[in-house]
Nucleic acid binder design. Structure first.
Lengths: 196, 196
DNA sequence: GTCTGCACTTGACATTGTGTCAATTGACAT
DNA sequence: ATGTCAATTGACACAATGTCAAGTGCAGAC
């Protein structure tokens, strides 16, 4: 939200996010986006070279608009590793539904477009950093189970928090967001944390 | 393998599986499959009405050729719930790499084709039944943690064993198959099993 | 032997969606 | 007035899927 600069570029990005969030999913074409932004299809190409770049820009736009960085940053202020783990699970887990539409489109594109793949991996590595920070905080408190190594623990937490897992439970199995958060938090604790 | 009936239909299915397993991934078109099966592109359409049905038939073909049913059945003979859980994790987890290529193509198609989606869900519900059997066996032994309900436990095990999670760890993070199996087994135990 | 049916081939074509190109319009700034 | 810049319009190239119609070659029946 922040600035109300309604440049054509941001109108396109907003339209893209809106259509993808609506969840019709597959059926979002360049022409649909143009129509939603009330410009011609060709005008979209004046701002974005192709569909992949548009989707990438849309995720960045969304990340900024939703303030994901600040939200994840919040978990950094936690006093100890356990609280930090919980806070991170909650912050990211509650962020997923807000970006799912766009994320889904980008995930699909990543199979065919190397640029999209790179952008996606970049985005995911940011999440992984959060996982690493949480794991390291546990380690510092000597509360990390050493069934797995540090790096393995990070990968496991990252896997648990993947958008695909959210999709599995919420979309495919009909879980509520609250049940999802509660379960993932519990699983993360059981797998990563040992009793004091 | 079983029968060496080299009908055109099975030649097409074998070619499809082979190309998809090769992992080039996105770049498998109907024309590629036809060429690999040494027939004309149009002949493929004499046997399968469209790409979606071909992919669906290919997964069925692969499931049968690899004997997935027997392999999963093996875990049913386990004496107790814990052994059964381990056996199921191992059987399914080791099956994933053998079908990943075809599964990936079908997963991609499921976003756009309702038939593919239905076929995929059907396939996945078979895996879920295995998860349910393992959870129920634990329940019978009074070894199931009751942090989650029975149904939630099933969904969680199913989520842990999802192909996407295998993809995350093996493809994206470079884990070995052995590390993957060991970790998932360990996580499943920690989440589902309580000490005797 | 020829006829018939069947599996397959050949080549053309429709369709959908992406991306490109060139000519034009309209507004605004100087 | 003129130049510039964003956007429009319409035409087109390109993949890839899927459809259609005519033709080929071969095996089995009579």
């Amino acid at each position: 939200m922040s600035r109300e600069e309604s440049t054509t570029r941001t109108r396109i990005l907003k339209a893209t996010c809106k259509l993808l969030a609506a969840g019709d999913g597959q059926g979002v074409r360049m022409a649909d986006i143009a129509k939603a932004a009330k410009i011609s299809r060709q005008a979209v190409y004046l701002h974005f070279p192709n569909r992949a770049e548009l989707l990438i820009a849309a995720t960045r736009h969304l990340d900024q608009a939703k303030g994901i960085d600040q939200r994840l940053e919040a978990s950094r202020t936690a006093q100890n590793g356990l609280v930090r783990l919980d806070a991170f699970v909650e912050a990211w887990g509650n962020y997923i539904p807000e970006i799912y539409g766009v994320a889904r489109a980008l995930m699909a594109m990543k199979d065919s477009d190397p640029e999209a793949r790179a952008a996606w991996n970049d985005r995911m590595s940011a999440v992984r950093e959060g996982c690493a920070a949480a794991v390291d905080a546990l380690e510092r408190d000597r509360r990390l189970t050493h069934v797995h190594s540090r790096d393995e623990s990070i990968d496991i937490l990252w896997m648990l928090l993947s958008i695909r897992n959210w999709e599995h439970l919420i979309q495919d199995r009909g879980w509520s967001q609250q049940d999802y958060i509660d379960s993932i938090r519990e699983i993360a604790r059981r797998v990563l944390v040992r009793s004091a």
